[in-house]
Design a protein around this nucleic acid. Structure first.
Lengths: 194, 194, 194, 194
DNA sequence: GATGAATGAGCTTTCATTCAT
DNA sequence: AATGAATGAAAGCTCATTCAT
């Protein structure tokens, strides 16, 4: 990685954290520059606008999440076990690096005006979606999961897990996220199995 | 209803639509006033701030959604049938009055800074949450649903349905929402049944 | 006094208190109406504008203060004793009805734009100024006070006493106002005596 | 002085003039920016709010006034002569740079809500007050001034001189300020001497 | 006289973005 | 690459005043 690429990534990571915790509109470009100890002018040398930065972040995040799921996909285990592993890693991430999941929920989900131009469809989250698709198709092919419209299954995964993280963020879950892993994995498996 | 109460509600409805379709921050108070044909100053006679308006809207919406679910709850039908009816009404609402569901997803879910003061926990969405809780407890009591942590079940409902509406909003669902009713009802029932 | 005149005076007194304690610009017409339990519209039946109200208040206040000083002026005592009595009543007023003195300091003194039209010169405070002038001329005539420019003497009285009340309002006087009566009367007398 | 410090001071001076002549609330930030030929946004880079600007101005003004009085304090002359010199410089300032004295009278004195947070007591005018205190203590120590409560003496100075400038500002003084120097110095000396 | 909903100009403040250095 | 002062449009909100009832 070149020096420039490293700095680019450090900007993405700092912005990701700020956008997630303080909200997209409440985070200003000077805020980001300050955290990084660089000037606003220079930050614009790396990302031409705040919106472009937001889009690069969602791609980056989706890619990382996708790669984690890929590691599960290539394991030689049953779909039931894969589901549990995916739930585990999602919640682990939400607990250890909450900014990524929060970014999905609090920035990507709700600022259509920002992402509509350049991230149409699921263009910017394809890294993540693709791996869920692979998981699902594999399960169907191996006769472990019921053959149904992909989006019915995808909505379940994404919505359910995202919803739990949201509830956690609102401080209304009586237990820690990881204590829900068994329940939720079971529910998802029951929903999708043949 | 007095004239003032009627006007109050018309403001809520107009704001609900604008916030949902254009986003909370992209919708200005003058925008709302213009749509209603009233002055900015007068709008502030009804709601003291934009944030307070946002909170009143979520209460209003949650109440209406809760009442719809209540109608299902009091029917003398099985939990499986209730699930289908709830999914039906949720998607019907998303197709006919999309602003309500969208408000949950695009405003309430992702502007913590706005709702943190006054809507802590699920204070402002209790109308909706309570009815889901009643549905779930009934089902468990009648031996039709597996007894599990309420939030595991609630997250499934809310997250799954919300997720599908989001996907629809992103124009990536190949079919209309109502065509997913059977699949999704089945998935939820399989997940929750004993 | 007619009913209307009574109401007029109650408006003046309520406004006087609010303007003095909260400042002229921080006090709104609805604030005043609320305190009085009347409507804003009706308040405008008594005073055509906020500025006019402010001017009527200064006249009213000046008149009352002037009458108090007049009571001293007609006493058959020395100028030295009169000075003490005037200081006494001024500080008594500042302690018991602080709004009047505060109004001079915090409203009249510093909102030239409000009083410039209609209160030119000392037009609206003539009630007060006139009595000070009488006191001074009497003293000179009786050979007790040095003959000097009236304004040199008036500035001393008004400025000194006002200054002390200001310092009290800022909470920086170590003692109560009335404990300064002797010192200050002596200083003024020494300054003005032949 | 850096370029930035120079600009900061030019903002203070321009605001001082506008606030003094037009009043604090009647002077808008765009007014100030316009006079300086700079943008509103940039002005906020120097002072975070209008209130903070107001507080910086009073500190600045008080400092300058204090330094002038200091020059008198260090002279080897009698208290009587010092009084005359202080009155002289005060009136000279009021005639040549009226905005400073006017700021005390028309902004600082009467906008408690602005200065209450950050300028408690005489925090922001200590530059000026301190020098008056030194003058007075010196005089007492040298046996030239009567030993009395400092505030009795301070109120006389501050109130009297301020009052005269106010009367001048109201256009009711028949003579120029400097023509009162002898009368007023004599009055103050008579009031304070042993 | 009395009401208070309605007006709308005007305020302070913010912030993405630019550009001379 | 790097700086950060500068821009200016636009936001949320206030409030003296009016007027239909």
């Amino acid at each position: 990685m070149t020096k420039k690429e490293l700095k680019r990534e450090s900007i993405i990571q700092a912005s990701l954290k700020l956008f997630s915790s303080n909200g997209f509109h409440k985070t200003t470009i000077p805020d980001i520059a300050k955290v990084l100890g660089m000037s606003v002018g220079n930050l614009y040398n790396y990302f031409k606008s705040k919106d472009i930065l937001a889009k690069e972040i969602i791609k980056y995040t989706s890619e990382i999440l996708g790669q984690e799921i890929k590691k599960v996909n290539i394991l030689d285990i049953s779909s039931e076990e894969k589901i549990k592993k995916i739930v585990e890693l999602y919640f682990k991430m939400a607990e250890e690096k909450p900014e990524m999941i929060e970014y999905f929920l609090r920035v990507y989900l709700s600022h259509r005006e920002v992402f509509s131009d350049g991230c149409e469809g699921m263009l910017c989250v394809s890294g993540f979606v693709t791996e869920i698709m692979i998981f699902f198709d594999d399960g169907v092919e191996r006769g472990e999961l019921r053959d149904q419209d992909f989006f019915s299954a995808f909505g379940l995964f994404m919505g359910y897990l995202g919803g739990m993280v949201f509830l956690k963020g609102e401080n209304i879950l009586p237990k820690e996220l990881h204590e829900y892993i068994d329940d939720i994995s079971k529910n998802i498996y029951n929903a999708l199995k043949v």
